[in-house]
Structures are given as structure tokens and as C-alpha cells.
Design a protein around this nucleic acid. Structure first.
Length: 560
RNA sequence: CGGGGAGUAGCGCAGUCUGGUAGCGCACCCGGCUGGGGGCCGGGCGGUCGCAGGUUCAAAUCCUGUCUCCCCGACCA
């Protein structure tokens, strides 16, 4: 029953005052979603249709690679999470039942699915497996934001693969690459598959599926043939003008100049002619000096990955005691290992002199200090990969695929016997996909001044019929009939049969953004036609009354 | 967690400084006109001013506490 006169589609003329992101504003205005609390959202009927269309696409692609759909509970015993070592995670909602037993609201389902597999799988003959489900996930996010883009409760497709070894895991992973590529395409999104950080939980490889748009929370570095999350991106730095070489470093007075900017402008050299020293403390209280070009920034994720262990920036007093006055430190004479960033080309640089109010000029890496090469800087716009220039765009992470390895099979005891009767750990992968984010990304990428303009595959309805004419009129009668005919042709039709003005109906139709709008009014009816407008580009055409439904369906099939 | 902002009718807001009958636009309801881009006329409904305590003859307004929401940052296995 999708006559607008009886359908729950509360549209708003104005966006909520607190809304910032385009998708947030439009999805609320169009009557797709409503907020319940910080990070809690209701999907209204039309919004839920969008969500379910995305879900169906994901389901079909998962089934196509041999995925088996199931369902696991959100509420789980804390014990499982203690066993996997994830009970301490801040974002995990924890609660107690009436008997005082500790429970959690699951944020993903590795623990449960691995437990089942551990119990049931005995032999290499039982592998591989691809298990998945759509389920509510709960995360106590520090800061929910932007409508359904970042919420504390959301539905996610999670799949888990179980394989005999790393090579077999690669195969399962590759299947997911294929499935995910198709899901993103079918949702009508512009997207990139980017290299991603594997995070603290380890793992042996990860990609994220990113949909570029202004409201995105992630940044991706993109060049021809290259795409990576900025967190892990790597590229060639833009060169800086070489400085005249000196036989040995030379002290230059720089009173009060403790910033790159101040020193560079005092010496009339570009920022990139300086070397920046970033002192860090490792676990065992060891100090290291990370050295990179003055115009570059340390990427802490890359640095941590390069170190293979956590670190923290050194405090000012530690620097003063072990190296030199903060603001004037440098690699020359430093009594600690030096990590030199890959962005530093051979040549002479200006560095801190490890004494107050002085810098050194003509410092050459290798000649004046020894070092270990690392790649720990944040890539910038204009850097290059294989000669092509990097650009950086904000993007929404719609999905991610991740090789877990034995991270969960080990603590949860998921093992099997191989052909030789030897016990082996199962190799796992996990793969998430957020339908809500896919929907929001589609809105972000396709909206215009009038509202949403859905890709055909995820629109709440295929066609919206707008009838202009009062109850009992010839226009109404024709529109009523057309409504039925289009439905019989298999289209999802929204029929605006409200007793409202044409302006209001057109405005609402454009806000909701169904791919086709059919207008039935006296003007065209008299001419023996009805008007069909494509939401994208607002192109209007007319079709003859006799076979209007068939022609409209034909138009719809040809849409992107 | 740090910084900033906001809670008054369904939505968007004014009123708070300077205490004195709670307002505006849109939406909604009734009647009529209109019928291809939020049209017009007339008449209506709707609010414990986030919550609790305090000051006062009197509190949306002043004081104290508390809850909630938003934005920026941190964070986001």
C-alpha cells in the first residue's frame, strides 16, 4: 500500500538545526530516518526500503561466492569476550543480567562464530567455510555523528571465512574482493578499494571500500593505479630545491626561533630544507629520534607499524635531559638511534644544534649522522606514485575486508586435523559491510539542490506517480489505473494521491528522489500523453496514454 | 576525555541581559475558492518553556544542581 495519502513519509521543509552533513539533512527531510538519541536512529518505511535494497544486493553477492547466511545473537556472555581478550575494549557495551552475570552487546561476532566452528569443525574436509549474517552491532562510540554515518547501533553484514592455511585464506579473501567490488558497483556508488591499516589486533592484510564524499570521515590518497587510506599511504615526496653543500655543518644563531616556520624564513630557505626531529619513547623507556623533512608530518600509524610496537612522544623534560633544549634538537651528536624518513633526499639540511638558540646548516645524512631508513610520513597532495600525482579526498568507509589469521582461532580453540592427522589452527578472515553507510554515501554522491537522486538499484521506489487534479477527476482515474498497471509490470510504485497542490507534490518527489517521476495532469492528458521526468538531470519526456505503463517500465530498465 | 554551542508548539526560531497574561513563520484541524511548482480568504487546535531544587508577592527569565543533544578535536580492535 504505497499511496502517499496513507503512507508514513513525514517530509520536512527545513533540515534539523543540528544537521551538518548533506545526507543527514536530506534523509531526515525526505522522511527516511528519525533520530532517537545520540547515535540511535529509526528507519522509517521509505528509508527502510532503501536499507533493505542494499541488504538484498549484499546478500545476493555473498551467496554468489558461496556464503551461507545465518544469525547470531547481539546479547552475549562476557566470558567469550574475556577468552578472546576483547572484553577490555572501551567501545564494548557491558551489562549484567538479573542474576548479576556479566553480558556484552556484541560489536562484531568473531567470538560466537569461531566458537561454533571450533565445536563443529574437526577435519580439513569441513573447510573452507564462508558464514555470514546481517545483525545489529552495538558500539559505544565516543562521538556519534552525521545521521546514520556514525552511530552506536547499526546493522552490518559480517562474514567470516575459515580456511586451512594462509594460502587458502587468500582464496577466500579474493572471493570477497570480487563480491565487494560488485556490491559497490550495484549500489551505484563511486568507490575505491584502498589499502588499510591492519590495526592493533594484528592480521595480515586489509582493504577498505571507500565512497568519496564531503561528509566522509576518512581520507584516501588516490593516484592513477593507486589508492590507500591516508593512514598507511606511501608516496614519493615532491623534491625541494637543493641547498649549497658545505664541507661540514656550520652553526647559525637562531635566537628564540623554535619553529620550522621561524627558522626557515630567518634563513630564507623553504620549510623542506629543514629537518624536523621528533623524539619518541618506546616501551622500555628507550628513546629514538625520528627525523623527517620540515614540511612533512609524522604519520603515527605508519610509525607504529614501522617500529612494530607502541610508542609515545617524548615529554619536554625528557628531551631536555637526554638530547637538548626543545625547539633546537637535531640528529647531529644525538646519543640514540635515528630513524630517517624516506622523504629525505640526500643533500644538506638545516637542523637543530642541540643547544639553545642555534641551528646547524649543511647537515648531510650519512656524513654527519648515521640512521636507519623508515617510511613514516603522512602523504601530501602533490606527492607522486609511479609518476602520477596524488590527490587526497574525504571518503566514507562502506566496507572492509580483513585477514585475521589465527587471532581468534587460537584463543577460542578452532582447530582441525589435516591429511596427515596433525592438528592445525584454522585461518580466518572477517568482512564487514554497512548498508546504512552505503545508503548515506549514495545520497551524498548523487544529491542536488532539490534533494536526493537515488541510483536506480537502491531507490526507495522505482517510480513516483504525481497526479495533479482533484478527487473524482479524469486525471485521478487515469493515475489510479496507471498505478495498478505499473505494479503489475513489477515496478515498485509510490503514488502521490494526496489532496495537495502540485508544487508541494513536485517538491516532495524531488526531495525523495525516485529515479522516475510520472506526472498525470489535465494538460498532458488532454494531449493524449503523460509526462515522465528522469530525476537525474531532470530530463522530461512524454509517453502516449495507450501503452504508458509499458513505456515507463522500458524507460526505467534503461536507467543507470 | 578537552574546547565551543543549544534545549520554548510537529519543524525552524524570537522572548532570557532588565522577573509581571508565552509569541512568530511554516505545518496541522474546519469551511470555501484554486488546481502543472509549497496558491488565496475566513475561523480554529496545540507548549508542565529539558528536569529537580532554591530566591521572590511573582520565574521561560535570577541562583544551584542535573539530564539530553549538536559542532570541533582526541578516539574509532
Amino acid at each position: 500500500m504505497t499511496r502517499l495519502s496513507t503512507y508514513f513519509l513525514p517530509t520536512e521543509r527545513e533540515p534539523p538545526a543540528e544537521a551538518e552533513a548533506l545526507s543527514h539533512k536530506l534523509m531526515v527531510r525526505a522522511g527516511l530516518i528519525r533520530q532517537v538519541g545520540a547515535g540511535f536512529w529509526t528507519w522509517l518505511p521509505a528509508g527502510w526500503r532503501v536499507h533493505e535494497r542494499v541488504v538484498q544486493i549484499v546478500r545476493e553477492e555473498m551467496n554468489a561466492i558461496g556464503g551461507q547466511e545465518m544469525l547470531m545473537p547481539v546479547l552475549q556472555p562476557a566470558e567469550l569476550w574475556r577468552r578472546s581478550g576483547r572484553y577490555g575494549i572501551e567501545e564494548l557495551f557491558k551489562l549484567k543480567d538479573r542474576r548479576g552475570a556479566d553480558l556484552v552487546l556484541a560489536m562484531t561476532h568473531e567470538e560466537v562464530v569461531t566458537t561454533h566452528v571450533a565445536a563443529a569443525v574437526k577435519s580439513y574436509r569441513d573447510l573452507p567455510l564462508i558464514l555470514y549474517h546481517f545483525q545489529v552491532k552495538e558500539r559505544d562510540e565516543p562521538r556519534p555523528r552525521a545521521g546514520v554515518l556514525r552511530t552506536r547501533e547499526f546493522i552490518m553484514k559480517d562474514s567470516y571465512t575459515f580456511d586451512r592455511d594462509a594460502e587458502a585464506l587468500d582464496v577466500s579473501y579474493q572471493k570477497h574482493v570480487l563480491a565487494y567490488d560488485r556490491m559497490m558497483d550495484r549500489c551505484g556508488l563511486e568507490w575505491y578499494r584502498v589499502e588499510a591499516d591492519v590495526g592493533m589486533m594484528g592480521g595480515t592484510g586489509a582493504h577498505e571500500y571507500m565512497a568519496p564524499c564531503p561528509a566522509g570521515e576518512n581520507e584516501v590518497a588516490i593516484a592513477a593505479g593507486y589508492a590507500a587510506n591516508l593512514e598507511v599511504a606511501s608516496a614519493e615526496a615532491q623534491p625541494v630545491a637543493p641547498q649549497p653543500p658545505l664541507a661540514a655543518p656550520e652553526v647559525v644563531p637562531t635566537p628564540g626561533m623554535t619553529t620550522i616556520d621561524a627558522v626557515a624564513s630567518a634563513l630564507s630557505v623553504p620549510d623542506g630544507a629543514l629537518l624536523k626531529a621528533y623524539p619518541i619513547i618506546l616501551d622500555g623507556d628507550e628513546m629514538r629520534l625520528v627525523v623527517l623533512r620540515g614540511d612533512h608530518r609524522v604519520n603515527e600509524i605508519k610509525l607504529q607499524n614501522a617500529l612494530g610496537m607502541p610508542f609515545r612522544p617524548a615529554h619536554a623534560d625528557e628531551v631536555a635531559v637526554r638530547l637538548g633544549p626543545p625547539g633546537y634538537i637535531g640528529p647531529v651528536g644525538a646519543q640514540m638511534p635515528i630513524l630517517l624518513d624516506a622523504g629525505v633526499a640526500p643533500g644538506g639540511y638545516v637542523t637543530g644544534a642541540n643547544q639553545a638558540d642555534a641551528h646547524l646548516r649543511g647537515v648531510e645524512p650519512g656524513r654527519d649522522f648515521s640512521f636507519e631508513r623508515v617510511d613514516v610520513r603522512t602523504v601530501m597532495t602533490g606527492d607522486t606514485v609511479n609518476g602520477s600525482v596524488i590527490r587526497i579526498e574525504p571518503a566514507i568507509e562502506v566496507g572492509n575486508i580483513f585477514k585475521l589469521g589465527t587471532r581468534y582461532s587460537e584463543p577460542l580453540g578452532a582447530r582441525y586435523l589435516d591429511e596427515t592427522g596433525k592438528e592445525q589452527l584454522i585461518w580466518m578472515g572477517c568482512y564487514g559491510f554497512g548498508p546504512a553507510r552505503a545508503a548515506a554515501a549514495a545520497v551524498e554522491q548523487s544529491a542536488d539542490e532539490q534533494g536526493i537522486s537515488w541510483p536506480r538499484a537502491v531507490a526507495p521506489f522505482d517510480v513516483e506517480i504525481v497526479v495533479v487534479g482533484k478527487e473524482g477527476s479524469e486525471e485521478r482515474a487515469f493515475a489510479d489505473g496507471l498505478y495498478g498497471e505499473l505494479q503489475e509490470l513489477g515496478l515498485d510504485v509510490l503514488y502521490d494521491d494526496r489532496d495537495a497542490g502540485p508544487g508541494e507534490k513536485f517538491t516532495d518527489a524531488e526531495l525523495l528522489g525516485c529515479p522516475l517521476r510520472v506526472t498525470v495532469g489535465r494538460r498532458t492528458l488532454g494531449a493524449g500523453e503523460v509526462e515522465v521526468q528522469l530525476r537525474r538531470g531532470k530530463l522530461a519526456t512524454s509517453v502516449l496514454l495507450e501503452d504508458a505503463a509499458e513505456e515507463i517500465a522500458e524507460l526505467w530498465r534503461g536507467l543507470p
